[in-house]
Amino acid sequence: MQPVVKLEDIHRVYDSGEVKVHAVRGISLAINKGEFIAIMGASGSGKSTLMNTLGCLDQPTSGRYLLDGIDVSRLERNQRADIRNQKLGFVFQGFNLLPRTTALENVELPMLYSKERISSREMRDRAMQALEIVGLAKRHDHFPSQLSGGQQQRVAIARSLVNRPQVLLADEPTGNLDTRTSIEVMGVFQKLNDEGITIVMVTHELDIARFCKRNLIVRDGQVVRDETVANRSLAPVEIAKLQAAETAAKLIHHPA
């Protein structure tokens, strides 16, 4: 089977005048459909640059990037925008929802920039479906300020799904969330992955990476470890454990 993402000897050099920063030094990588990968690494390891490259936000200095069989490493700005719109979904650490805009309108946003014309009715239907998947259909008319962090991140996930992308890219999706909400968000990712969606996420939290199927560790712009996760964490189990621990610590009171 042809991999969804294929990186061939990717280099990225930032040229800021005097100093040249070699952020990514020859990464080759193949990601197949249905994979769930965590990219890990310390700050400055090049994982963000790798993520920006995967997300077609940045162009590699050299090397080839095949996304869904198309070489996207030498595309122009607007062509890359179309690729991002059609083939990729983004989830950010800071959620990046438009303020004072309802959840529904936020989720509709990628469809407004679609190449093909989508009727407003279909936009609404698809956005509602996406919100349904993340369990927030009832809150479609809420503004981000009226939603908790976890809910905002789920709206962002719904937004990333709405154009049916090949790959969902998540940059530290749990970075701004507490443990419990993080597990809930990972639960959403696991559910989506079970339905066949390919997910690549960046994280620096080991226990979050354990929810994924495959872990990549990046150091000094190179992949230093690439392993399948044995003993993978499952969100419902972890939630139950957390609940038990909290009950034991009497942090929350359960009426019998």
Binding site: G55, L57, R77, N78, A81, D82, R84, N85, Q86, F90, N96, L97, L98, L109, P110, Y113, S114, R159, N163
Partner: peptide, 10 residues
């Protein structure tokens, strides 16, 4: 930035 990242042309 959000708009550009989800596919807006300049």
């Amino acid at each position: 930035g959000i708009r550009l990242s989800i596919g807006a042309h300049d």
